[in-house]
Amino acid sequence: MSLDNSTVAKIARLARIRVGADEQPHLASELNHVLGWIEQLSEVDTKGVEPMTSVAPMTQRLRPDQVALENDRDAVLANAPESVAGFYVVPKVVE
């Protein structure tokens, strides 16, 4: 198994991180190095082992169906890089 530049480009796209073509070979070699090391997990016999889904054995609690936090628009928008009239601003997405 070896990651090539086109796989790196695909992962970068999925992760929404711009990766220039010039950075791909270096990243491919780094990721291959780490993934190759992770590969040793295939030695472990895990037949019939339930994957861990919860660190501590606990059941999910239910909470009363009540509003606990009022929607505070100004607080939510306080850190937005750009907002107008109570909305976030993004580049045009619909023509």
Binding site: L3, T7, V8, I11, A12, L14, A15, I17, L27, L31, V34, L35, I38, L41, S42, V44, T46, V49, E50, P51, M52, T53
Partner: peptide
């Protein structure tokens, strides 16, 4: 990027599920 890769279609079982089994 490693996380995105191990969770991506076709690799989830080989990496993520396997790791959660070893974690158990």
């Amino acid at each position: 990027m490693i996380g995105t890769y191990v969770l991506s279609a076709g690799y989830y079982d080989a990496y993520y599920l396997k790791a959660q089994q070893v974690r158990a």
